[in-house]
């Protein structure tokens, strides 16, 4: 059986909120290392990969592999009943029909309990090759969100060009063009404001801004976001969570002109 207790419901609420517009039905794969999820959007352009390590829960118990097929719209409805600060416990039997969610208020003696019916989801599982990326950019997640939103006002696509000079986000649209360039930057007092660019070779790739803006819904999960790029491979956008847990998005590039 599965029993996983989160100190704050907020974490799961934010994760589900960040991915629910990209993917609808997904398997939450539970085993003794934690709870993982991998799902592609309908058009096979973007992929979300979530890992909540067992250390992110206390306690965490999962004796055998359990796949919880959950509709994220249903999960969102139930999670709306949880306060951000509530303690959240997920429970399921070994061959479950339902997943049980318990929300406990730390301040009052209120306990709420919900069951969500599970679905059989035959999900295609993709192997993601280990990649040595040509460029890795760490930057404030709010900055990335702002750049994507600002450029989306002009264009559907953004080119991300990484060179020794820095990283340039540029777009061209009907009304004109725009770009934002960031250089490496260290803020001793506020490390969350750092921009770090790790480059082995110059990279230039073009991506759909609609998807990037969608990924940015995860911004509240982490002060920093990591972008990993290599020519002609999907972009990796990573939001690191505590205890080596993470929320990652992959986005296929656009080609041609």
């Amino acid at each position: 059986m599965l029993e996983a207790r989160l100190e704050q419901a907020n974490l799961l609420k934010k994760v589900v909120d960040a991915i629910k517009d990209l993917v609808q039905d997904c398997n939450f794969d539970c085993n003794d290392s934690g709870i993982a999820l991998q799902a592609m959007d309908n058009s096979h352009v973007a992929l979300v990969s979530m890992m909540l390590k067992s250390e992110s829960f206390s306690p965490f118990r999962c004796d055998r592999n359990i796949a919880l097929g959950i509709n994220l719209t249903s999960l969102t409805k139930v999670l709306r009943a949880a306060q951000n600060e509530d303690i959240l416990t997920l429970k399921a039997e070994d061959a479950p029909d339902v997943v049980n969610l318990v929300f406990e208020s730390a301040e009052s003696d209120r306990i709420s309990e919900y069951d969500i019916k599970l679905m059989d989801i035959d999900q295609e599982h993709l192997g993601i090759p280990e990649t040595e990326y040509a460029a890795t950019i760490s930057m404030p997640s709010a900055e990335f969100q702002r750049i994507c939103r600002d450029l989306m006002a002009l264009s559907e696509s953004v080119s991300i060009e990484c060179s020794k000079e820095g990283v340039k986000f540029a777009c061209q649209g009907d009304i004109g063009s725009g770009s934002v360039t960031l250089r490496s930057h260290t803020n001793v007092d506020k490390p969350e404001m750092n921009v770090e660019i790790d480059l082995t070779e110059p990279v230039s790739l073009t991506f759909s801004l609609k998807y990037l803006v969608g990924f940015c819904k995860a911004s509240s999960l982490s002060g920093q976001v990591k972008l990993c790029l290599s020519n002609e491979v999907p972009l990796l956008v990573e939001y690191a969570l505590a205890n080596n847990s993470y929320l990652r998005f992959y986005l296929a590039p656009k080609i041609g002109d």
Partner: peptide
């Protein structure tokens, strides 16, 4: 115009 690629080109099915 740019053509959107899909992930199937890059990631293998398991």
């Amino acid at each position: 115009h740019h053509v959107q690629q899909t992930l199937d080109t890059f990631f293998c099915s398991r």
